[in-house]
């Protein structure tokens, strides 16, 4: 396959070219918090600091809050207005783990129903991946079949080869985009070789591991072990950081707001860490913190694989990095009895 390449200095021009057809999102730092934010049209300074975002790219597809529709109460019942759908976004710099996370999320939003909010955004989006050469000490993607330098879940994949990026076409969408893109050089064999070397090095830098081999079985046999889960959950403060900022967590809540005779229906992120999540009029099946911690772990590593044959974790390490009490999923999995 013939690959292309681009000098890092020309990245601004490339993004500018793409911005004619797409709204461009790049890693941006808003108030010291990295997320995929709107590109300002010139700045490529993120290349200097970007390792991964704190807010995962799922936020671009399943935003923390969105309006599902507006309604108005008139004399002849309710009238409903749907939001306009313009979702031609190009996300630049997505990491392989996050690329995979979107593939994992696709399962849930195409399963029982076709989600009319998530899917159009997904279909309209181009993902430009950027190989991760400096994984964090919290990353364990290689244990989940992801390599920090490679991805099949994006449309184009870029690899840092020093002064240049090697550009690989991964999907048809990526191929089409490349056909419309001018001013790229063909990559030489030397470039490709350097890229593979960088990828290999990055892979070896991920030293944190989990053993997924008998995980499902172990979780099943530990499920009733209240003592274990109580001990594991003791220091958890039941906040929503690890679930909200998890790239594969997808639970949402729906609520209506009505002022006078009009209003809107919203959906927003929800988290199984909150006791309210399962609260019902008569009882709460997950009243205790340890039950909710168990749910989170089992959902990712047991229930999700049962339903979709894939573990709902990409080893991005956000939940470990951002946890205010250093609750470490790898330790919990590593210490499972049985």
């Amino acid at each position: 396959m013939n690959h292309k390449k681009i000098n890092k200095k020309d990245l601004g021009n490339l993004l500018h070219q793409w911005s004619k057809d797409y709204t461009i999102f790049v890693p941006s730092n808003e108030g010291d918090t990295a997320q995929m934010g709107l590109w300002d049209g010139s700045d490529t300074g993120f290349l200097d600091w970007y390792r991964n975002t704190a807010k995962p790219p799922k936020a671009n597809f399943l935003p923390p809050v969105e309006e599902m529709f507006r309604f108005q109460k008139g004399k002849e019942g309710h009238s409903i207005k749907l939001p306009s759908q313009e979702h031609q976004q190009l996300i630049f710099g997505i990491r392989p783990c996050d690329g995979r996370s979107l593939a994992i999320l696709d399962n849930i939003f195409t399963d029982a129903y076709q989600d009319p909010y998530y899917l159009p955004r997904r279909e309209g989006a181009v993902l430009v991946g950027l190989g991760c050469l400096k994984p964090y000490d919290t990353c364990f993607c290689t244990s989940l079949g992801i390599s920090p330098g490679e991805s099949n879940d994006v449309d184009l994949m870029l690899t840092d080869t020093g002064d240049e990026f090697l550009i690989e076409e991964i999907s048809d969408k990526g191929k089409q985009l490349m056909e419309l893109t001018a001013g790229l050089e063909d990559a030489t064999e030397d470039d490709t070789a350097r890229a593979s070397e960088a990828k290999g090095k990055a892979h070896d830098k991920v030293t944190r591991k989990i053993d997924t081999q008998h995980l499902s079985h172990k979780l099943l046999s530990t499920f009733e072990d209240e003592t274990y889960w109580e001990k594991v959950a003791a220091k958890c403060i039941a906040c929503g950081i690890c679930t909200f900022l998890c790239p594969t967590c997808h639970c949402f809540d729906i609520s209506d707001e009505m002022v006078k005779k009009e209003g809107a229906r919203f959906r927003c992120w929800d988290s199984c860490a909150f006791p309210l999540y399962t609260k019902m009029p008569m009882e709460n099946p997950r009243e205790e913190k340890w039950q909710r911690v168990r749910q989170k772990v089992c959902h990712k590593f047991e229930f999700y694989p049962m339903a979709f044959d894939v573990i709902a974790c990409t080893g991005c390490g956000r939940c470990i990095r951002l946890c205010p009490v250093n609750w470490d999923i790898c330790q919990t999995l590593g210490q499972l009895p049985g």
């Binding site: 108030g31 918090t33 906040c239 950081i241």
Partner: peptide, 28 residues
């Protein structure tokens, strides 16, 4: 206004706080 646009309402501030001990918080 600008700072709170960023808030994702994870309630870490509340849950990490020893003084926030309400059984049920007013937001709920």
């Amino acid at each position: 206004r600008r700072e709170f646009r960023r808030c994702i309402r994870c309630y870490a501030c509340r849950n990490i706080c020893p003084s926030c001990f309400c059984q049920r918080c007013f937001v709920e």
